[in-house]
Every structure is written in C-alpha cells, then in structure tokens.
Simulated scan of single mutants.
Amino acid sequence: MTATPPTAPAGRRAFGWSRRMLDRVPTPWLITGGTGAALALTAAFGGLNGVSEPQIPELTVGESFSGSDLLMTVIGVELSDERAGSGVYPDAEKGERVLTVILDVTNEFTAPRTAASGGADSPVVDGITIEGVTTTPPGLARADDGTYGIHLQPDVPVRIVASWVVGAEDVQDGDEVRITLPDSTHGVGQAITMGDYWSDPVIGAYVTAEVDEVEVP
C-alpha cells in the first residue's frame, strides 16, 4: 500500500503560494509600490503638510512686542518740517520733511546695550522701518534730551525717537502707516567677533498707526 503524503495545512499552502507569486514580482515594482503606500499613509495622517509659518503679529499703538531681547511699544508717529535732536536734516527747498516714530524700549537682556546702527545691536535700529515709505535706517535719539548712542540698561524703559527724511508726497497728515519692529538671533562671539551680538534680523511684528502732523518740536 502506497503511503499518501501528508497534506499541508491550508494556511501554509496559502503562504507558499503567496511567496511564489511575490518572488515573480520585479524588485523595482516592490520598491515603488512600498514607497507609494508609505507616502499615501503619511499623507493620510497629514505628514506631508508643511509646518505652517508663524503669523507675524499685527499690533496697534500702545501694544508691546518682545523681540531681539527688547520690549518695544510704539507710542505714535509724527510728521514735521524738522526735528531737533533727531539726527536727520531735511532739505526744505526740496520739500523734505521729518517722519518720526516714537517708541518706548526696554532692554530685556542681562547686560547694558547700545542702540546704534551698524553695531552689535544694529537690528534694534535697522529693523525699524515704515513699510513702503522708508528704505534706510533711522536716526535714533532719546526723546527727552536728543542724546545719540543710546545706552539701554537692563529693565529700564527709554523713550526713543526714530526719524527719517521723507519727500513731500511720501506721507501726509492722517495717513495710516505700517511700522515693522525687529526680531533677531542672539549670539556670542568666540573668535573675531567678541561679546554678545544680534544677527539675522527679521520682521517680528507690524504696528499700524496714524500719522500726526505736529509743529516743529
């Protein structure tokens, strides 16, 4: 009597058939198919959606913004024929005028800083602009005595005037302007540049304000 070979369980037969069929599929197909499946799964769970850029805050006069280790609050925007102690000098024959942003600034860093264009704290100055109106860093001075090279002691608020020369048609009394306030990255120099500095300035906040025509201060 001839012995009958034992019959493989159904599960094993199915696995064997699947394995044989899989061996016949070209490897590139497997790679492509697997990648597609992974991408489909990732997309289904939102993995392909880029991380949305953080929205730049939109502020109004009197609201504060903390950036570049400074707390900045725009108090107002003034337009005048000239401004003593501003560090900018309009040409009256050309119809030039002085546009000034008044703001309170508090140094939130642990050491004193100097607000001056082109220095370690240049983002403090260069990042303050009026969108569509100014293209250069402003003249910067203390509001109370017109002192240049402003020293900012930690946690001591200082009222500052940032001023530009503008053309007669650039901005008018009652115009609404959009001011940019800076944010930047704090670094510590280890080689050529020594000490603390702030670099890579970006727009940290917008402040919308109305221009106020004033007599020559």
Rank of each mutant, 00 (worst) to 15 (best):
W29C: 12
D104A: 07
E78T: 13
A8F: 15
A191D: 10
A116H: 00
G167A: 14
V101S: 09
G146I: 05
V202G: 05
V25H: 01
T35D: 13
G174L: 06
P137C: 09
A44H: 07
T134L: 10
P182V: 07
R12K: 11
P112S: 01
S163Q: 01
E213W: 06
G76W: 07
G149Y: 04
P6M: 12
G46H: 15
D212C: 00
A10L: 14
T7V: 12
D91G: 14
R113P: 07
S64E: 09
E131H: 05
V207L: 02
Q55K: 13
G36W: 14
R24C: 03
G47P: 13
V216Q: 09
R142C: 01
L140V: 12
A191P: 10
P123G: 03
P28K: 00
F65G: 04
T114S: 00
T134P: 02
D145F: 10
V158T: 05
G132N: 12
D183G: 08
T32G: 13
T129H: 04
M194F: 02
T185C: 01
D155N: 10
F45N: 10
V214I: 11
A209E: 11
G87A: 08
G149V: 03
V177G: 00
G11I: 14
D69R: 02
T114H: 05
P201F: 06
V158C: 06
V61S: 09
F65L: 03
T135C: 01
L79R: 02
R13A: 12
T4L: 14
E210Q: 13
R12W: 10
A14P: 06
D121F: 00
G34W: 05
T147I: 00
R19D: 01
I203N: 01
F65R: 00
D126W: 12
D81I: 06
Q153H: 04
D155R: 03
